[in-house]
């Protein structure tokens, strides 16, 4: 007769703990990528015509720690994070590659011309093949890839100076060791 009481007490304890976690800033909506600590999926994306550095393939990600940023000229939140990416590139903090997701090359190029171009390589992904392989849920999303080409982190949403300082910069410093 006391069994239901014990089960409920255990459940309530779990709820209480979760409630404390959530108030402490642990967002239950964040589900990390299943690709964490796995090699960046194989892809070979075409370049935006006329850009200096060419398209993006998996092989390009080996050799040094880099960011891969999924964006689109149609994406409002990408506009929000863009100044931060431009600043990171200006200070040469980390190479940033772009994946132009579901976009027309002219639109991507015009957007970069207008807002600044922080990217090393940019690959086109007009049919979402790369986005699907990466499990992208929405733009912008940014992957931290280590020197071996392994995904170490995925950030969902715009990168702000705050995100850079508290999450990405420490992780990158650690990966470079």
């Amino acid at each position: 007769m006391v069994i239901p009481l014990i089960i409920v007490a255990a459940l309530l304890a779990v709820f209480g703990k979760r409630l404390a976690d959530v108030s402490g800033g642990d967002d239950p909506r964040v589900v990390p990528t299943v690709l964490l600590n796995t090699p960046f999926p194989a892809m070979d994306l075409a370049a935006l015509p006329g850009r200096e550095f060419g398209g993006l393939s998996t092989a390009d990600l080996k050799g040094q720690v880099s960011l891969v940023n999924v964006w689109g000229s149609w994406c409002v939140a990408c506009m929000v994070e863009h100044p931060t990416l431009v600043a990171l590139n200006r200070e040469k903090l980390v190479p940033i590659h772009g994946i132009a997701w579901r976009d027309k090359p002219e639109a991507s190029l015009a957007w970069l011309a207008k807002n600044g171009d922080p990217y090393a390589r940019v690959g086109q992904d007009p049919r979402s093949s790369a986005a699907i392989a990466l499990g992208v849920t929405g733009a912008p999303e940014t992957f931290v890839v280590d020197a071996e080409g392994v995904i170490r982190y995925k950030h969902i949403g715009p990168i702000t100076p705050e995100v850079w300082k508290t999450k990405l910069a420490p992780l990158i410093a650690q990966l470079r060791k």
């Binding site: 459940l11 779990v14 709820f15 703990k17 979760r18 976690d21 642990d26 239950p28 964040v30 589900v31 990390p32």
Partner: peptide, 14 residues
Amino acid sequence: LYPLIADAFELGKL
């Protein structure tokens, strides 16, 4: 409740 229980015992987010 499983995602919540997994969260509480840090069995990973799912």
